[in-house]
Simulated scan of single mutants.
Amino acid sequence: MERFVDAAPSVRLWVEDRGATDLPPLLMIMGAQASGLGWPDELVDKLATRHHVIRYDHRDTGRSTWSFDQRPYPLTELAQDAVTVLDRLGIEQAHVVGMSLGGMLTQLLIADHPGRLLSATLIGTSALSTTPFVHPDGTRTSPEDLPGIAPQLLEMWARPVEDHGLEAELERRTEHWRALGGNQLPFDAEYARALELKIIKHTGHYATSTAHARADTSGMDRTEQLAQTSVPTLVISAPAEPVTPPPHAHHLAQAIRGARIVDIPGMGHALPRAVHTSLARAILNHTTKA
């Protein structure tokens, strides 16, 4: 079922839910500049066998309100949007899965709204914590000294996005997914292109939002709260991750009290068909235990 919910004055969010409403709710939070349709239907349907699954478009993505240029907001406000989605659907507690920026927003929920979470799963993200990473040999590395984003991606992100028509935009987005996917799994260009075409049709245009890249990032540190949380947390480790490369996932698992980590072989910063089964299995095992 699709609907719109009011998140703030003049801000509406597109929301879709799948699965029986008497199943435990599972809220899926996508990354920066990404529509909720960035969660592939095949993955959502696997999770909907055991959950009432909710996905939504962030502000300035998909069918939700694009208003950043008129009313800028901090990234922390996007975390409040997630709470608002639950409120509007009458859901008191939910399992939450967040990817990339969505993983950061999920950490804000763990820290600031622990009573609303039945569990948390974090994918392709870095810790909102200043806790050093402890290597197996006992040496420590500060978070700012952990490996950074792959140079290829930084170079792609530095290029201005110019309008050369729909086909050129689909090609650009497909190549972006190729880079995000890493180098361990075969890249399915047709699958990536079809996903982006669906997102463009859903949105109604192919303009690219830069709102989340321009939003205020202050006030995100949650070192103490994450170290003390009782929210059952799963961290997905992706060995081919080019945005938050190893050992970011292990650092995240160290920074969050009680977190456990599961490796998805070959996975990068993307959700190709090849990882759907293993990723869904990891999430469902975690939510069942939680």
Rank of each mutant, 00 (worst) to 15 (best):
G103R: 09
G103V: 03
L105V: 06
Q107E: 05
Q107D: 02
Q107S: 01
L108R: 08
L108Q: 15
L109E: 00
L109K: 04
L109P: 00
L109W: 03
I110D: 03
I110M: 01
A111N: 01
H113K: 09
G115A: 05
R116G: 08
L117W: 08
L117V: 03
L118Y: 02
S119Q: 08
A120E: 05
A120K: 09
T121C: 15
I123W: 13
G124S: 06
G124T: 01
G124H: 01
T125G: 02
T125Q: 04
S126N: 13
S126H: 12
S126D: 05
A127N: 10
A127Y: 03
A127H: 02
S129H: 07
S129F: 02
T131Y: 04
T131N: 11
T131P: 01
F133V: 00
F133S: 06
F133W: 15
H135Y: 08
H135S: 09
H135N: 14
P136V: 11
D137Q: 02
D137K: 04
D137P: 04
G138I: 11
G138N: 09
T139G: 10
R140V: 09
T141W: 08
S142I: 10
S142D: 15
E144P: 07
D145C: 04
D145A: 13
L146V: 10
P147C: 11
P147H: 06
P147T: 13
P147V: 13
P147N: 11
I149T: 15
I149V: 15
I149Q: 14
A150M: 03
P151W: 11
P151Y: 07
P151G: 11
Q152K: 14
Q152I: 14
L153V: 04
L154I: 11
L154M: 14
E155W: 10
E155F: 12
M156R: 15
M156Y: 12
W157Q: 14
W157R: 14
A158V: 02
R159E: 12
R159D: 08
R159Y: 00
P160D: 08
V161M: 07
V161H: 11
D163Y: 01
H164Y: 09
H164T: 04
G165W: 03
G165E: 05
G165V: 01
L166R: 15
L166G: 02
E167F: 04
A168N: 05
E169A: 12
E169Q: 12
E169L: 00
E171C: 00
E171L: 06
E171F: 02
R173W: 13
R173E: 11
T174H: 10
H176D: 13
H176K: 11
W177D: 15
W177I: 00
W177R: 14
R178N: 06
A179M: 13
A179N: 07
L180I: 06
G181V: 03
G181A: 12
G181N: 15
G181S: 14
G181K: 08
G182Q: 08
G182L: 05
N183V: 03
Q184H: 07
Q184S: 10
L185E: 06
L185V: 03
L185N: 12
